[in-house]
Every structure is written in structure tokens, then in C-alpha cells.
């Protein structure tokens, strides 16, 4: 029992490290294929997966933020590595959007849009997850009142 709990705890600790890169890659691939809503889809999956594994909220949110931000940062980095003037383009985008012509602002706005999507997806994923039935050996993530009422 103790080892099970330890394993579960290790998953909860390690989950973001596993989920986030996979999710980010998924989002980046989605973007490359024209799926601008890939961060949302990745967020739903993240919410479901972390919920199923009963990952704590901070870890879940952290994963979602990482997935969204990194998922859209990867294509930008790819562009920069390919020699495209990403900084100057960012300034252009910011200026056209009516913001101060700052590359950082455009990048931040872009990553924010991705993060908002993953967070929204995550909320949906978690909200539609079936409530887990707590076992006697594991502390419930939900208040005990739901246990007694079952």
C-alpha cells in the first residue's frame, strides 16, 4: 500500500514533466497543420489526464501553462532558427494591433492566447471527468461528504 501511494505520488510529481513536453509537441504540430485550437484540445486532454491521475491543481495549471506557452513558442523558435526575422515581425504585429511596437508584447500576447486556450481546455477536461470513487486507503481529493452520500 505504501509503495502504491509512493508510486502515485511520484506520478503526481513527475506528471508535469511528462505531460508538458508531450502536450507542447502536440500543440506545435497542431499549429503547423493549421489547428490554431490545438492548445485548447491539448488543454482538454491535460485536464482529463491530470484529473484521472488526481494531480493537484497547481501541477495541473502549471502543465497547462507550459503546454500552451511552449507549444506556440516552438514554432516561433523554429522560424527564428530558420533565419526568419521573428523579432522584426513581432514588432510589426504589435504595431498593426495598435500596441506599442514591441517584440516582447507581441510574443507575450501570442503565448497568452495559447495559454488561455490550454487553461480553458483544462477546465473543460476536468469538469467533465467522472468523479473518482475514493478508496479507503487513499485520501480523497474531494470532500468526504460525497463519499458518505454515495
Amino acid at each position: 500500500m505504501r509503495s502504491q501511494r509512493m508510486a502515485s505520488g511520484r506520478f503526481r510529481n513527475a506528471a508535469p514533466l511528462l505531460i508538458a513536453p508531450a502536450g507542447a509537441l502536440l500543440v506545435a504540430l497542431g499549429s503547423a497543420t493549421g489547428l490554431w485550437y490545438a492548445p485548447f484540445a491539448a488543454g482538454v486532454l491535460t485536464g482529463a489526464a491530470t484529473g484521472l491521475r488526481r494531480m493537484r491543481l497547481p501541477g495541473t495549471l502549471g502543465s497547462a501553462v507550459l503546454i500552451g506557452a511552449a507549444g506556440w513558442a516552438i514554432p516561433l523558435a523554429w522560424r527564428a532558427l530558420a533565419g526568419q526575422p521573428v523579432g522584426a515581425t513581432a514588432e510589426t504585429i504589435a504595431a498593426l494591433a495598435g500596441l506599442p511596437s514591441s517584440a516582447a508584447l507581441a510574443v507575450a500576447a501570442t503565448l497568452l492566447v495559447a495559454v488561455l486556450q490550454t487553461l480553458a481546455g483544462c477546465a473543460v477536461g476536468r469538469a467533465f471527468l467522472p468523479r473518482p470513487r475514493p478508496t479507503a486507503t487513499e485520501p480523497a481529493l474531494v470532500p468526504p461528504v460525497s463519499v458518505t452520500s454515495v
Binding site: 522560424r79 526575422p85 515581425t89
Partner: peptide, 14 residues
């Protein structure tokens, strides 16, 4: 703001 197909794609023309 989709980094692959949105306004960022104009970086290629830069």
C-alpha cells in the same frame, strides 16, 4: 496569432 499560419507567417517574407 497562430505562430504557423497567422500573422507570424509573414516572417517568411521578411
Amino acid at each position: 496569432l497562430d505562430p504557423a499560419r497567422g500573422a507570424w507567417a509573414s516572417a517568411d517574407g521578411g
